[in-house]
Computed example of a mutant assay.
Amino acid sequence: MEFTQFHPTSLAAGPTQTRRPLISEAVRGAGAPLVLENGERFTKELAPRDVVSRAIAAQLKAGHQVYLDGRHFKGRPFSARFPAITKACHAAGLDPDTQRLPVKPAMHYHMGGIAVDHHGRSSLPGLWANGEVACTGLHGANRLASNSLLEALVCGKWIAEDIDAHSTPFIPLSAPTPRVPFLSPTWTLNDLMEEQAGILRHEDGLRALLEKALPLARHYGPALTASFIAWAALHRTESRGSHWREDAPTSRSPQRQSWTLVDLPSA
């Protein structure tokens, strides 16, 4: 649950309450550099996603602005090369042919939480899992579009064949438990997750996140998810792929950890 990937370059403009448009790696691959407000380059644009995301996050944390500059492509301009991205930029009030694009990392994909066997079966009868939600080891610790596509195709076929070979017994559902009224906290869980369990993590921040999220976990789904991520991140005292601990920056022997709700300390 600790392996949550950030895309390095989402468009940091326009409405803040909606999903931010992603500026594809293809833009950097075509030659657009990442620069600070003074035009200075600060990282290798084609490094792995986690490396670029951390470099941008560090600059933002230091008070800088980060931009993707696609104004100087040779031959065709930005709008001709990337019409769909250009449309998203225009919707945010920006012209990528004449303006630098403000960017920041954004939560992108998960690298798997549900442990499954080679048929994609979980420990819950009748539940199969595949892709970003499944913990198969095929993603590794840093998702790439290519290996997730291969996993979906290959494992998807195996899972479909296994489902066809099974007849899952009907399990009657009991009446749902009445929902406990939930009072929104004064703090925002999204902001707290970004600050304490985002790209750059530290033991103190993860513990602070758990102290606030865990008491709400049994009544509020997002707080439960946040608690699982923070708990797993707190107990992986190393840095690997998308999981980066500032207080434990080196990797050690590969390991897989499994957590259940009963493992979490009671609120």
Rank of each mutant, 00 (worst) to 15 (best):
R121M: 01
D69G: 06
I23G: 02
F73I: 08
R121D: 00
R143K: 05
T225W: 04
H166V: 05
P77N: 03
H64D: 12
L124K: 04
E2G: 15
L189R: 04
A141Y: 02
S251G: 02
V51T: 09
R236I: 10
T177I: 11
E211K: 15
E238L: 02
E195Y: 02
V133E: 07
R49C: 05
P48M: 04
R218D: 15
V154F: 13
V116E: 01
E45S: 14
D247T: 03
R236T: 13
T186L: 03
E132A: 09
R71F: 02
G205R: 01
P21G: 12
Q5G: 05
D247F: 04
P125K: 04
W244C: 09
L206D: 13
L183Y: 07
D69M: 06
A58E: 15
T260A: 05
A80S: 10
R49E: 13
C155R: 14
P178C: 03
P178F: 09
P105G: 07
P8N: 11
P96G: 03
A217L: 04
R76D: 12
S253P: 00
L214G: 14
D191F: 07
T136H: 01
A12N: 14
P15Y: 07
I229C: 05
A129H: 03
S227G: 08
D164H: 15
S258G: 11
G156W: 05
R49F: 12
E161L: 13
L144V: 03
F228H: 13
A248S: 06
K61R: 15
D164Q: 14
L124H: 05
E211N: 14
T177L: 15
G93D: 07
L60W: 02
E40S: 15
A12F: 09
T237A: 12
R256I: 06
E203L: 03
E195I: 00
L34P: 04
A88C: 02
I171L: 14
W231V: 10
T86K: 04
S146D: 13
L60G: 06
P21I: 09
Y67R: 04
P265Y: 08
H139W: 01
L36D: 08
T168D: 13
E203P: 07
C135S: 12
R121Y: 01
W259G: 04
A208L: 12
G31Y: 01
I159F: 06
L189H: 06
L124A: 06
G241V: 00
V27Y: 01
A55W: 01
Q59S: 07
